[in-house]
């Protein structure tokens, strides 16, 4: 993936860009619209019957052991660059880093988890995740 430059300032750069809409990933969107913004229930008290809202919990707990193992593996890979057959050509190495970079070469645990939520969401008709409610309300948070 190459760095896209859809910006007012013009000119491509090293900074990856994403706006609202299709450019931003689901993870970026979830972080904003589920956690922030005005909560409608604070203002209105009208109850609506028959409208179902899927319960969505964006806070995905990544078991720390899994995180540690992922980093151990990544570190062992990084070491290949360190002592293994020396990189033939620095240019090539840099390029591979940059290319992998754009989308995150080891897709982070969070990204993976969010993809999973995405699947759940898109197959939202299955009733497991659907919590029929008498009225829409802010999703419960245990924080």
């Amino acid at each position: 993936m190459t760095v896209s430059a859809q910006r007012g300032g013009g000119g491509g750069g090293v900074v990856e860009r994403g706006g609202g809409g299709p450019g931003g990933g689901l993870a970026d969107v979830i972080e904003l619209i589920l956690d922030k913004g005005l909560v409608i229930d604070v203002f209105v008290r009208v109850s609506l019957v028959g409208i179902e809202i899927l319960t969505i919990d964006a806070r995905i707990v990544v078991a720390s052991v899994d995180t540690f193992l992922r980093f151990a593996e990544a570190t062992n890979r990084a070491d290949l660059y360190g002592k293994g057959a020396k990189p033939k050509d620095l240019g090539e190495l840099t390029q591979s880093i940059t290319e992998g970079g754009a989308k995150g070469k080891t897709s982070g645990a969070l990204d993976a988890a969010v993809d999973k939520v995405g699947e759940l969401l898109s197959s939202g008709r299955e009733d497991r995740e659907a919590a029929p409610r008498r009225r829409p309300r802010q999703r419960e948070r245990d924080e």
Partner: peptide
């Protein structure tokens, strides 16, 4: 359908 699909969020 229930509200809250990926498409709804986006």
């Amino acid at each position: 359908r229930p509200l809250g699909t990926r498409k709804d969020l986006l």
